[in-house]
Design a protein around this nucleic acid. Structure first.
Lengths: 354, 354
DNA sequence: TTTCTGTGATGATACGTATAATCACTTTAT
DNA sequence: ATAAAGTGATTATACGTATCATCACAGAAA
């Protein structure tokens, strides 16, 4: 459907008013000064004056079509960008992105129109609008490997947030070094004297899940120990009760939980079940709630700098789109370090604790 | 700076591959079927087949230039859209906006590149990019009346969030009926027996501030009573201590506070000062924190349905941009009702309470 | 005078899409 | 038989901006 297009002020009108050609107006606006293209100060002033009076603004679409970038960064989120309930995974990321975008003077385009199938947005579909942006940021815990590969092949500038393996390692990303922090936390538990480890993680789909698992295994095994693993998807309900039953049976002294929400819920279940945390059972979360969430417990956990993640992703994308601005060339695959938060859910194990 | 433009698949290429003209491709894509423009099914299939193979996507900029809408809704926020600290005023709004945008299949363009002067973004500036979107949502507690007027005059489709007086009432908005809820809360206090009212509000700049003040005054005065008013801008520090000193001196039995953050802080100050809430002093907040914020007190307050505000604004903008879809024509100026939350900070006054 | 060199500005064109105007051809009506 | 109507597709053009190639002209050099 055609837009009810209000009369627009164009360069041609400016040109008429200033008594010059449209080309001259464009040259003035873009400040070109080749040896073959010269605008004397007097003419320049006259044109600028008219522009000021008419409140002319260039049509971004026309600029884009003419081959100039749009100063637009797209944001594609595989899930909803804004929290429908209380799980606001994206908010700190977006905060960082917004700040960086403002700094380099680009607008943000959120691809909310991408159709959702099987609970996830699809990047490619018949009315794919990625090209409206000069480049794109991809957010989401899991991403479709085929789509990523296709995107790389299309040579469209983009940066994934979170480490991505697909496409033979050709995917530019800014990720979180979950491995390093996980190893630190494992080391902490080992040093405290823990010997019976249990890890409750999410289903293996995202790289970040695998990273944590691998790192935890490696660290524990390097101490000649081993860790019992279990998977749970949901953060509530019967699944978690089942998970707790299994944990109870295994009698670990320290419990690692990938998902922060699950960690909170399990602590409550444990306490309700007469198991003191951390006296009888230490719990370490390999993730973090971004908001207080009403849960007062200060978990021993890792903390990902999501805001920094966002701003660094913008910087990288900017570089990919526009080339290096200064001498510092950014790596196309980056990991930012996690902080380890001591918290209050870890203690030395007691003999026969559970 | 020119974008490193990757080779794009254009309609012309599709046309060559399918053995038709570019125009035919366009016609197929747009499904036109005038009496003068007919595409037989066989040709249509052939073209669609080629498109499917080539992963062609239309260039939105070109479409826009050709006079077709972009299915883009702009979001202009006078302050940062995403919280830099913890005050996330916009998040629930954006949640509502995102959901509605997804439903009608439009993307969201956040104007983060607008330059900030005097701590606020400017709508109009030399590289105004509003036109990139088909229409625009305006968010912010206060908006520049001149800018709004200019926007109305430009006939650019937009909707303000929050009631706006400017431009002789020609501004389309979806606002919150603070007045109604404020009157209810005032009535509540009156009915409980309160006679000594005090109102601490923000500086008069936003319409919403004025609405609450007017409504509170009217309700209290209709009961033959009066309310002492005071202004404080900041939600912390010395200002608030001063404000409290003034309140203390006036000895009200019920304190209305516009800003929820101030209300929380004042309650803490009151309690620390030996004044029990609500036994000795009732406090009513005419606003709400969107997040728990660690403050456990359940304030008697009004609660604005911000998510609904967002989705209704999108619906209205959609109507303004595209005309009415079904028979229900939306009003260009709407107020959505507030909920009144009973809370635990109001009680009947005691004689000589403070 | 003629030729060269710089100066100031313009015309033409490309970008990719949408669509009105038109054309060639076939079938039906007169 | 010719005109009218219908069918399938194409050509031409507009949208607003950026930029290359070009031009007119003045003054300097030959």
């Amino acid at each position: 459907m055609a837009i009810n297009r209000p009369e627009r002020v164009t360069q041609r009108m400016i040109a008429e008013l200033a008594g010059v050609s449209q080309a001259t107006v464009s040259l003035v606006l873009n400040g070109k000064t080749d040896s073959t293209t010269r605008i004397p100060a007097e003419t320049r002033q006259r044109v600028l004056e008219v522009i000021r009076e008419t409140t002319y603004v260039a049509d971004p679409a026309a600029r884009s079509l003419a081959g100039v970038g749009n100063n637009l960064i797209g944001i594609f989120t595989y899930e909803h960008a804004f929290p429908h309930e209380s799980s606001d995974f994206y908010t700190p990321l977006l905060t960082g992105i917004e700040g960086a975008a403002e700094q380099i003077g680009v607008d943000l385009l959120m691809f909310t129109s991408a159709p959702v199938v099987d609970g996830r947005r699809r990047l490619f579909h018949e009315n794919n609008r990625l090209r409206l942006a000069d480049g794109c940021l991809l957010l989401g815990r899991e991403m479709d490997a085929d789509e990523l590969t296709r995107l790389v092949d299309s040579r469209y500038p983009f940066v994934a947030i979170g480490r991505r393996d697909a496409a033979d390692g050709r995917i530019p990303y800014v990720g979180v070094d979950y491995g390093g922090a996980t190893a630190q936390l494992a080391r902490l538990a080992i040093d405290l004297g823990h010997r019976d480890f249990y890890y409750l993680h999410l289903p293996f789909a995202a790289e970040s899940t695998r990273d944590r698992k691998d790192s935890l295994s490696a660290e524990v095994e390097s101490a000649g120990l081993s860790v019992t693993m279990a998977v749970t998807e949901s953060a509530e309900g019967a699944d978690l009760d089942l998970a707790w039953a299994a944990i109870r049976k295994a009698q670990p002294t320290v419990l690692f939980v990938e998902d922060a929400g699950q960690a909170e819920a399990l602590r409550d279940i444990a306490v309700a079940d007469g198991v003191a945390v951390p006296e009888q059972l230490s719990i370490i979360a390999l993730g973090e709630r971004t908001r207080p969430s009403g849960h007062a417990v200060d978990f021993t956990r890792l903390s990902a700098p999501r805001q920094e993640l966002g701003s660094r992703a913008v910087a990288l994308l900017d570089q990919i789109m526009n080339g290096t601005r200064d001498s510092t060339e950014l790596a196309h695959q980056q990991l930012v370090s996690c902080t380890v938060i001591a918290g209050a859910t870890v203690a030395a194990p007691r003999v026969g604790s559970m």
